[in-house]
Nucleic acid binder design. Structure first.
Length: 552
RNA sequence: GCCCCUAUAGCUCAGGGGAUAGAGCGCCGCCCUCCGGAGGCGGAAGCGCAGGUUCGAUUCCUGCUAGGGGCACCA
């Protein structure tokens, strides 16, 4: 019996009480909170239903609980019902009923933990979208790890997810990039507003080496254009490779430039004009975004005839929607929070529902720390830490895990030296080790003749077994919640907790008999529990995009 | 000036209204007579300040303080 089952059972009891007239008229909830009490003495599960509902029926919580208790005690598998504190109802289940879940987990296998909260929804998740003017650094690496995990979580709830990367290959910054390459190729100093760094020199040399014609002999404009085209392409390849090595592959790499080439920008503006949200002033074309709560109207086409950045955003959003995406999620860095107002406004301007069809997640910064002191990252000083640097230092799993286990609302400090020197400190190993241990235990058990022929849930009576089972059955709730709140870190924290419960169980309950002992039913049954733990750890790690080694 | 995020143990962080606030690392003390000690057990140690809502607030609201990040006809 899962907590969800218990919740449903309690609701049925409430309905029965009402239909018998024991309970007066009033709306009943469709589910009640059933959770694991912190204190083990309070039973296996607890509900605050009486406290939540008593006032509605004009009763005090304890009296309400008294009404409910005998009915709950009569449920199959419930061995004890207590009323405690202000009106908590504590339930204790028989070991057999609790343990039966172990068989369900093993039977469900990889499907355990899946849900269908988002079934039928087509979702577009845009993340990273770093400019192709340099390698991906720590901030982008965070979104890569979190975004990919979130995509997995949304898919896990039945959504059809498109992972998308918006590739800003249009505009002034790209010109700066091209000029920087050209200068580097000529051995000149970096332009005032240009990009510097070893990678600029490398790309400049590669462009020279891989282009047949002599670029440097071309007129200025043509030379710059040649470096722009080839340089962006090389940078793009590098970014895509880094991401791939990081375990993140996008379904769509969308080129901003294509919006201009295809006329999509024009179409988007025309559509908004028809809707009455476009006006002209001071020689520029504006979106009247203040109609939709933005704090100022936005220039779409500048007075010099060039498109402002938001022009691309308009066309891009429209394009996503026309491709059939019900929900468009943008993951942006904290430096883009001022963006939310205009983005929501453009969503509304198209007649969509802001916050539903368009959703923006703002993630805070990643800082580099050394010996507890913040390290100022500077492109010029060459102290920018890239995705590749991080992976080289700590490996993909540790990097992804470190970036995923915290809420994106918190800024994150990464101490590269600490992660480099003492990788054992990283909690990912604690979780992966637990998984590897389940594999090793199973292997030993099999070699000692412990089979899976029999499973008798009533034998799982040790306290650590009850704790472990209760944690295992939480996976579906955790993954559903993580998807709903867009919080992959909940899965990581859950796994750490689960790993601890598994290690504790391992220390208390042997799957294999002591030498000289005989294999008994309890050993076979525990092998099932061991398998279930391995399965849940595996399912959880996969949702985070972390590997599941069988030995470490 | 306005906007966003944050403030929980020595450190890095969980905790999306419930009972005695958790984990990892660090510190102190234990456990190798058996499935991996990358583990387990015990201990010291904490909700920035002030109000409010609630039966109940670390959680929700307001103000204050502190830290981080933003406020373009840049992209």
């Amino acid at each position: 019996m899962t907590p969800a089952d218990l919740s449903a059972a309690i609701v049925r009891v409430l309905q029965a009480l009402q239909s018998r007239g024991v309970l007066g008229a009033g709306d009943l909830p469709t589910e009640v909170v059933v959770e694991r009490p912190k204190n083990r003495d309070h039973g296996d599960w607890a509900t605050n239903a009486a406290m939540q509902l008593a006032a509605k029926f004009g009763m005090n919580p304890r009296a309400f609980a008294e009404l409910l208790a005998p009915e709950l005690a009569a449920l199959a598998g419930v061995t004890k019902v207590d009323i405690a504190g202000p009106g908590f109802i504590n339930l204790t289940l028989s070991a057999a009923v609790a343990g039966e879940l172990v068989r369900e987990i093993v039977t469900a296998g990889e499907a355990f933990g899946k849900g269908n909260d988002l079934a039928g929804l087509k979702m577009n998740l845009e993340f990273v979208s770093a400019n192709p003017t340099g390698p991906i650094h720590l901030g982008g690496t965070r979104w890569a790890a979190v975004g990919d995990a979130l995509a997995r979580l949304l898919q896990n709830q039945g959504a059809e997810v498109t992972r998308e990367y918006y590739f800003n290959d249009h505009g002034a910054q790209i010109d700066r990039f091209a000029r920087s390459l050209l200068a580097a190729a000529r051995g000149q100093e970096t332009p005032e507003d240009g990009y510097a760094g070893e990678y600029i020199n490398e790309i400049a040399s590669r462009v020279l080496a891989e282009t047949a014609e002599d670029i440097l002999a071309l007129p200025e404009d043509a030379a710059q254009e040649a470096f722009r085209a080839a340089g962006v392409e090389l940078m793009f390849q590098e970014i895509r490779e880094s991401l791939h090595d990081f375990g993140v592959d996008f379904d769509v790499y969308f080129h901003e430039n294509s919006l201009y080439e295809s006329g999509a920008v024009e179409r988007a503006i025309t559509k908004l004009r028809e809707l009455g949200h476009i006006f002209e002033a001071d020689g520029a074309i504006w979106l009247r975004s203040t109609t939709f709560g933005d704090d100022r109207d936005r220039v779409v086409i500048k007075s010099d005839g060039e498109a402002a950045y938001i022009a691309g955003d308009l066309a891009y959003y429209l394009d996503k929607r026309e491709r059939g995406h019900d929900r468009c999620i943008y993951m942006l860095g904290a430096d883009h929070h001022g963006y939310i107002g205009r983005m929501m406004a453009l969503c509304s301007a198209f007649g969509d529902e802001a916050g539903v069809n368009l959703e923006i997640m703002i993630g805070q910064m990643v800082n580099l720390v050394r010996d507890g002191e913040p390290v100022r990252m500077s492109k010029r000083a060459g102290t920018v830490v890239t995705m590749e640097d991080l992976v080289d230092a700590v490996g993909v799993d540790a990097a992804r895990y470190a970036l995923t286990r915290s809420s994106i609302n918190s800024s994150l400090d990464i101490d590269l030296e600490q992660l480099t020197k003492k990788t054992n400190d990283n909690p990912v190993f604690y979780v992966q080790y637990a998984h590897a241990r389940t594999k090793q235990v199973a292997k030993n058990a099999e070699s000692l003749g412990v089979t899976r022929e029999t499973f008798d849930a009533s034998l799982l009576t040790h306290e650590s077994e009850g704790e472990l089972i209760a944690a295992l059955v939480e996976l579906p709730r955790i993954t559903a919640q993580a998807a709903q709140f867009r919080d992959p870190h909940r899965v990581a924290r859950y796994l750490e907790d689960l790993a601890g419960k598994y290690h504790r169980w391992y220390d208390n309950c042997r799957v294999t008999p002591l030498s000289g002992g005989t294999v008994e039913l309890v050993h076979q049954t525990r092998l099932w529990l061991n398998d279930a733990a391995g399965q849940v750890l595996r399912n959880g790690l996969r949702l985070l995009g972390i590997s599941t080694p069988e030995r470490m």
